[in-house]
Design a protein around this nucleic acid. Structure first.
Lengths: 108, 108
DNA sequence: ATAATATTTAATTATATAGTTAATTATTGC
DNA sequence: GCAATAATTAACTATATAATTAAATATTAT
């Protein structure tokens, strides 16, 4: 499933979606609150939520007080998977540097 | 400089550029080798290199054997910055969970 | 000098994405 | 039932991105 990693990267490349994620890091928000907070039309925000939902970065949380409100909460898995990929990448690069250093000191 | 983070995410959202990065994790490659390895036209690959260069993810390495060849090597800083951002995000989310758990056990 | 090689750039085309406004769906409260 | 509210979806527009082919630049080797 490298597809999810790709979609996670694409999702996070948008500043408004990053804003959504950062807000949801602190607490769940309704769609309307997010739209107001970020300064987007409800329609525009809804489309961003759809993207984030489709890759499992957020999930709806039922709000029993008023079923018109739809709250969203962060799902940490995609971000965790991204972290794993970035970390592996870094480790691989570090190994490369070590190999080059070893070659340099011990002569070709 | 949140701009670089954004451009890093956008750069990595493309599978061919991710492939370039993963190859360069192991060793430097010339533009031609990358094009062959990835299966892209030299022109298409060159444009990807331009993107990666513009955000400092790769740098040209002089090849004294033949100045027609341009080798590229990975610069780890943008990936490291991305890792920092992802890690901070995860920590913030973890704190949120702890807060919610504390509220749940100690009663509102 | 010139043919061949390695790469980049320019011009163009096709596709994807983000935003807008208007319409739609679902729910609340009178 | 019906107006008001919350959110999503549809249709459309504008912009960005990726690929292709052709042309340009720089370097090597004959």
């Amino acid at each position: 499933m490298n597809e999810i990693l790709e979609q996670t990267l694409a999702a996070l490349a948008d500043p408004n979606r990053r804003r959504v994620i950062e807000l949801l890091c602190d607490q769940p928000y309704t769609a309307g609150e997010l739209a107001r907070e970020i300064g987007l039309s409800p329609a525009a925000l809804s489309r961003h939520l759809r993207v984030l939902k489709s890759i499992g970065m957020i999930a709806e949380v039922p709000l029993y007080s008023d079923a018109r409100l739809r709250a969203y909460a962060l799902r940490p898995q995609p971000m965790a998977d991204l972290k794993t990929w970035v970390t592996n990448n870094e480790e691989r690069w570090t190994r490369q540097m070590e190999t080059l250093a070893r070659r340099a000191t011990s002569g070709s």
